[in-house]
């Protein structure tokens, strides 16, 4: 049994679900309504044992071989305890879980994750988090053009600042702001799936291609390749965070230097798959259907926590 937890109108969830069903896999789909109706009796110690039940059908936990998680924001009430139980199961069940709830937790604090990426040996842009307007101005003066973006997992539109925006920097005094040197170059999203990777180049004039809107921001999304050494490093980076699947944001400068910005633990890969034909959902399903004990062990040796992480 493979549990897929997420909304049907969320493209990665529907892609994974359809692919698994086409292949004849036994699947339990949970969305917000079904989570609210779920019954369970679970005991946690080293393992999670017991059962969950839907529509009167009990599913022993030891029959669940894999889980794919992109849970929706939950409503209160009974769904809260059910969600907590499902996340606890996903944290410790002896199964392949894409991804364990705690594995991508670093994405909830971007500078923390950036430091981890840097510690892993990848180049990251100089970054300042501050509430000090003078420090912010010095940082902008030093780098000429900077971007500012959210610190937490709350999605923000990345925007740029330069020295002409000095007056606006007094606004940083009311709460921490993350500033990052602007890196010129081509965006490359690399989806790591187990030990495979899929690289997609995005050419776009907009500062944040995810929000490219005007005609001037015309975007080209092209399947590309990266050299094996970089690919292997990205696989190791994802594994070091306990992630079986990750969407890693990079930029290649005109000087052929790679900068790494972020590791997304729940990537919306269909945006790239639909544009390029890269078979990312199929690779995720391969992992869910065929991953062996080594993947499970790797994940179980990492810490876990009940927290969902969504790249919506």
């Amino acid at each position: 049994m493979i549990v897929v937890w997420g909304a049907l109108d969320d493209p990665p969830v529907s892609h994974v679900l359809n692919t698994l069903r086409t292949r004849g896999a036994e699947v339990l789909h949970l969305d917000r309504a079904r989570v609210g109706a779920l019954d369970f009796d679970v005991t946690l110690d080293r393992e999670a044992t017991g059962w969950i039940a839907l529509d009167g059908k009990r599913i022993p936990l030891d029959t669940i071989s894999a889980m794919y998680l992109r849970p929706e924001a939950q409503q209160g009430g009974r769904a809260t305890s059910t969600t907590a139980c499902l996340l606890a199961i996903a944290s410790i069940l002896d199964a392949v879980v894409v991804n364990r709830p705690a594995a991508g937790r670093s994405n909830l604090t971007k500078p923390f994750q950036l430091a981890a990426i840097s510690d892993a040996g990848l180049t990251v842009p100089p970054t300042l988090v501050t509430t000090d307007p003078a420090a912010a101005r010095q940082f902008v003066d030093r780098h000429g053009r900077v971007v500012y973006k959210s610190i937490s997992g709350i999605r923000s539109i990345v925007a740029t600042l330069d020295a002409t925006d000095a007056d606006r920097l007094s606004g940083v005094s009311t709460g921490p702001v993350q500033l990052q040197r602007w890196i010129e170059g081509i965006d490359v999203r690399v989806h790591v799936v187990g030990t495979q990777w899929f690289a997609t180049a995005i050419e776009c004039a907009a500062t944040d291609y995810r929000y490219a809107g005007s005609a001037d921001d015309k975007m080209a999304i092209i399947a590309t390749d990266i050299d094996r050494e970089l690919g292997d490093r990205l696989v190791r980076l994802a594994a070091s965070m306990g992630l079986l699947v990750a969407g890693i944001d990079l930029r290649l400068t005109p000087d052929d230097e790679w900068f790494c910005f972020e590791v997304n633990p729940s990537p919306g890969f269909t945006f790239y798959e639909d544009a390029t034909g890269q078979q990312i959902a199929a690779a995720v399903c391969d992992l869910l259907m065929n991953a062996g004990a080594s993947e499970r062990r790797t994940q179980r040796n990492l810490d876990s926590a009940p927290r969902s992480l969504i790249d919506s």
Binding site: V124, L128, T130, T131, S173, P176
Partner: peptide, 12 residues
């Protein structure tokens, strides 16, 4: 945490 004065960096 929302007062002026905090300065923390990565690679800077």
């Amino acid at each position: 945490l929302t007062r002026p004065g905090w300065v923390w960096s990565v690679g800077s």
